[in-house]
Amino acid sequence: MGRTRKKLSLFDFLNMTGYILFSLLVLYPFWQTIVLSFSDANASSSLGVHLWPDRWITDAYEFVFSYGNVMKAYVNTIIRTVAGTILIVSFTVLAAYPLSKKDLPFRNFFTIFFLIAMFFSGGMIPDYLLIKNLGLLDNSLSLILPSAVNVFFIIIMRNYFMTIDKGIEESAIIDGANYFQILTKIIIPISKPVIATVALWAAVYHWNEWFHALVYIQSDSKTVLQIIVRDMLTAMDLTQNAQMGGGGMASSKLMLSNVRAATVIISIGPIVLIYPFVQKYFIKGIMIGSLKG
């Protein structure tokens, strides 16, 4: 017994050390990005290691905030993310549950109906024409409706549902519950970990998605954060159109790397903070035990 315990704690020690080292490895670039974002061209460049800026300055942030309507874009992005996530999660659950029923007639047909959509898409032009013909151009709905059904998520969730013990449901059916009641009263509560995961995926998708916003949205008042991010990250330099007159994005003190770093910090802040809320649903064995009681 004694020997086993000692061996196990050595394993624990190594395991934890491994995770600490990994965390440091992951935190370093994040920290360097923060440092770069608070520096200017003279304080540090993207070359070399920077653990502390020569002096903390906020010019890069001011530059980003002066470039576009960042606050408005923030609000739009948050609204889009919340609405889009609710939509995706609901549709994922609604489609995944029936597909998880092995005895559902024509189940394969429906599965294939969803799968094909995962692999074949018409591409940009017909998508654009569709949005245009539906009158959704420059309408925020164009950002959440086309992606509301995500087949990848549906398959993952369906698979999860399929691992749920059938016994629980069968007893509910005998009690006279309909499928919708079973879904809301039994399936959803015990599937919290996977629903939370899909919700996280959906939220991150909506937070990061820029292409639809780029081609479907024209008004500045409806723009999203990633459009500003993309402008900064794809700019070859800060003075792109200066040669054609006017200052363009001219800034004398900053390097592109400072501005890019600030943009990244601005853009990932809120989304990084939601994970702890998701984690809450990862507590082991929720409900299952109580249901089986």
Partner: peptide, 30 residues
Amino acid sequence: QMKKMKGLYFMMLIPMVMLFIFHYIPMYGI
């Protein structure tokens, strides 16, 4: 069996319609 499970078909209906509109209709682009 289908009749018994009609509730399940009903559940899938909206996602399928959405998928049809936003994925199948533009598919001619291929």
